[in-house]
Design a protein around this nucleic acid. Structure first.
Lengths: 237, 237
DNA sequence: ACAAAGGTAACTGCATACGGTTTCTTTCGT
DNA sequence: ACGAAAGAAACCGTATGCAGTTACCTTTGT
């Protein structure tokens, strides 16, 4: 008897629930920043879009709120406007956990994951030389997904995964500059080489540098105080 | 116009939604391990318990599943049985982030939070000498909540908060031994002293040691040979 | 008596429905 | 013409109902 969600002997993938489908779809779109900030997501509207009722949509939206992809206001769900303070906070957490997680991944890397990493690095190089911005970003997403998938510590991996939106925001903000693209691609290649050598220490160091570089690139574009982006943080005053 | 959930100028507390009430209540009970492992939580049953319908309960349960407090099976929601691997993973993440978070809290500590920390430390000492296990655990919960509340980085704080269940499991598993109680209390007092001095570096170091001590105490009780589940039996007194 | 098969009860997931609240719009008064 | 108030619309939160599925229990056959 095939249990719920498990693949049975016939390899039938699974019958995904409506809630899960909607959640996955919306999260993917949010990670791609296909919804502008302050763009309201109304449950009944999304429901019509998916051909279901409001309930699965509502549950998916609540889950997205809980994971930080959306903010629930009194009037609908909105894409949160990330302020500079949010960015600084996210970078701080990433600095704490991602180097070690990547190092662990390098230690435990299997052949398939190594191949995925290398393929992503090759794609990134090709996209860079072809000036294909979209492909470059996609390659970086694949690279990140590859090493993140090699992290054995499930809690660590899921914790990192919660910052995917932030990472994507940084990418979209910084990777339109040719110089930044080149620096990022070269850093990715060196990181990839360290992964393929299973050099955990080098991977950790490179990841630390990579995050620092991204942070500098991001804040170079956003001088403090320029964008008065609403930072709904603690109302300390 | 009092907005939903906000306290208005008259200090009216708030009208919490049913979903939120149920979620908060269930999470508090789960953190206290009042539900034994493999204890099924049925939505219609909980709904009757709270005097509501199934929907808010269902949403609260889904949120708890999403946060790792429960696991959704084909037949109801169950309290997950934490294996030794889960514990090892949680400790790894805590080692990465909590020392720095505590150090930041020490740097930004205000007078009220400092008072809370000191009060919790005093309570812990009193409970230790009175052999009041429950009060000791409560003091440690308060202490942790106090410094965690002083962490300005909201993302960092919420990330740490996601491991509250793990922390509580460790406490319940280890803090029944008098020797461990004494060591933990003394460590807490030294940590508190460092906080009150605003000595961020000392706080970070002490927190590192604290986590290492907890890890050692926990795994000393659980020989690695047993890959069996840790059965934190319900406190059926 | 034990095992297998079928039936039954229970539970989840989704759909529809309703009330309350908030916000936008319109209208009325000055 | 501008502001305020009342009405209307939109939308969230919750309740109830129904179908599908899964586990458990009963029953039957050997």
């Amino acid at each position: 008897m095939a249990r719920r969600g498990e693949a049975n002997v016939f390899g039938l993938p699974k019958p995904p629930s409506a809630r899960e489908r909607i959640y996955t779809e919306l999260r993917a779109r949010l990670q791609r920043c296909e919804f502008g900030p302050s763009d309201r997501l109304v449950d009944i509207d999304v429901a019509a879009r998916f051909g279901t009722s409001r309930m699965p949509v509502r549950e998916a939206l609540l889950q997205l709120v809980n994971e930080g992809y959306l903010t629930g206001t009194s009037r609908g769900f909105m894409v949160p406007v990330l302020g500079l303070a949010d960015m600084r906070d996210s970078f701080e957490v990433r600095r704490l956990i991602e180097p070690r997680a990547a190092a662990n991944a390098a230690r435990d890397l299997d052949a398939a994951a190594a191949a995925s990493l290398e393929a992503a690095a090759v794609d990134a190089r090709a996209a860079l030389e072809a000036h294909a911005d979209e492909a470059l970003i996609q390659a970086m997403i694949s690279f990140r997904a590859a090493w993140l998938g090699a992290v054995r510590n499930a809690r660590l991996a899921s914790t990192i995964g919660r910052f995917a939106d932030h990472v994507q925001t940084v990418r979209l903000a910084t990777l339109h500059d040719a110089q930044t693209q080149r620096v990022a691609t070269e850093g990715l290649e060196q990181l990839c080489a360290a992964f393929l050598r299973r050099d955990a220490l080098a991977v950790g160091d490179r990841m630390t540098m990579h995050i620092a570089t991204a942070e500098q690139a991001f804040f170079a574009l956003h001088p403090a105080g320029e964008h008065g982006d609403i930072a709904p943080l603690s109302a300390a005053a």
